[in-house]
Amino acid sequence: MSASTNTSYGLLASFETPADIMDAAIKCRDAGFTKWDVFTPFPIHGMDAAMGVKKSQVGWFTFAGGFTGFFTGMTMIWFMNSHDYGLVVGGKPLFTPLYAFPVSYELTILFGSFATLFGLLFLNRLPRLHHPLLAVKNFKKATDDGYFLCIEAGDPKYAPEVTRTFLVEQCHARLVETVED
């Protein structure tokens, strides 16, 4: 943001239909913008590809969490029931992965889902208290029937007038507003 000379956060373009914003997203992607995002009231299938979003990295957090959970469960049960305080139940062996599996499996899911949630928040720089877009009155429609595309001023290809013209003429935005930082 320090690159831009004025105090604006970026340009917010609004669209009327999912098809319009999908089309606009493809154009922004192909124009080479890097710091931009779309906001819609519901997920639009195919928007990831239209925006050229790369595959999410959250899966790695999930895998690490699940892996940790599984071995935590196995180790915990082995330590408690066999190593630290041997406990005979139903004449079964003190430890076997067989009976430790259900608990380890549950911990795989638990740790996996925690890692997913916190990995997601971490990658998205969340939580945060305020966002400049929330000051735009019109933006409230993003949770109802509005489709928005915002190009940030920090984008290397951003130039206030040229980008505005691009959004209106190439992307057919219904309205383009400047967002104050």
């Binding site: 493809i26 192909d30 124009a31 195919g46 790369k54 959250v58």
Partner: peptide, 24 residues
């Protein structure tokens, strides 16, 4: 017809930053 989006040109697809991951 559903879900078929034209793929990004090579140059553009590599340049999309982390901020756009907020969509998931």
């Amino acid at each position: 017809t559903h879900h078929e989006i034209p793929p990004a040109p090579e140059s553009a697809s590599a340049a999309v930053g982390v901020t756009t991951a907020a969509h998931h």
